[in-house]
Design a protein around this nucleic acid. Structure first.
Length: 181
DNA sequence: TGGACGATTGACT
DNA sequence: GTCAATCGTCCAT
C-alpha cells in the first residue's frame, strides 16, 4: 500500500538558523506560539507552513531556552522510493524526490501535525539516525537561500559537493508582487 | 481587526 | 526567463 511504509533520506543540504541574533530566523523577534518549538529541547522538529501551501522542516539543535534550527533543504531518497514517488508524483525522478525543502517534507509525508515531534524517541513517526560522516572537503558553504538583508551575511547553507539532489541556489527575492506603499 | 508577507514550487512564455 | 497560487502568522492600527 502506497500510504504505508518508510521513506528514508540521506541529507545532502541544510541551512542553519540561529535564534534571537539571526534576522533570517523566525525566532529573531522572540518566542511566539509558532516558534515555541525552536526554544524547546533539542532533537525535536520545527515544522512550519509557508506560501500558503508548503511545509518546511527543521531540527532543533541548541539547549532548551535557546532558539536554534537547522532547515533540511534537500536529501537523497535511499529507501521507500515508491512511497516517496506516490506522494510526489509518478513521473518525478529519484534525485528530484527530496530536492528542495518543501519537496523533502512532502516525500517524507511530513506536515504540521508533526511539529514538535521528538526525533530521538524510538517508535516515533520520525527518526533521525547517524549516517556515514561526510569529510570536510566534501562540504561546501554558501549564503542561505531565500534569506536577504542582514541575514544573508552568514554562509550557513551547507551542502555536499557533487550531489545531484542539492537544490538549485536562488537568491533572496524582495517581493514580486508590486504593492503601493 | 486588517493587511502584508513568506526559509517555495510548478506552470507557463 | 517570469509569475501565480494560497493561508498562517505577525505587526500596525
Amino acid at each position: 500500500m502506497a500510504t504505508e511504509g518508510t521513506v528514508a533520506i540521506r541529507l545532502t543540504e541544510v541551512e542553519a538558523y540561529a535564534g534571537m541574533s539571526d534576522p533570517g530566523s523566525h525566532a529573531y523577534r522572540g518566542r511566539t506560539n509558532r516558534t515555541a518549538v525552536m526554544f524547546g529541547p533539542p532533537g525535536h522538529v520545527y515544522v512550519y507552513f509557508t506560501y500558503g501551501m508548503h511545509w518546511c522542516m527543521n531540527l532543533v539543535c541548541d539547549a532548551e531556552g535557546t532558539a536554534s534550527a537547522v532547515l533540511l533543504r534537500a536529501g537523497e531518497v535511499v529507501r521507500g522510493h515508491d512511497l516517496a514517488r506516490a506522494r510526489r508524483g509518478a513521473t518525478v525522478a529519484d534525485r528530484e524526490l527530496a530536492r528542495g525543502p518543501a519537496r523533502l517534507t512532502k516525500a517524507l509525508g511530513v506536515s504540521g501535525d508533526l511539529n514538535g515531534t521528538d526525533l530521538l524517541r524510538q517508535g516515533g513517526p520520525l527518526r533521525v539516525l547517524a549516517g556515514t560522516p561526510v569529510p570536510d572537503n566534501m562540504v561546501a558553504t554558501s549564503s542561505r537561500t531565500g534569506v536577504g538583508g542582514a541575514g544573508a551575511v552568514h554562509p550557513w547553507r551547507l551542502h555536499i559537493v557533487g550531489e545531484s539532489s542539492v537544490s538549485p541556489y536562488r537568491p533572496a527575492v524582495p517581493r514580486r508582487r508590486v504593492r503601493t506603499r
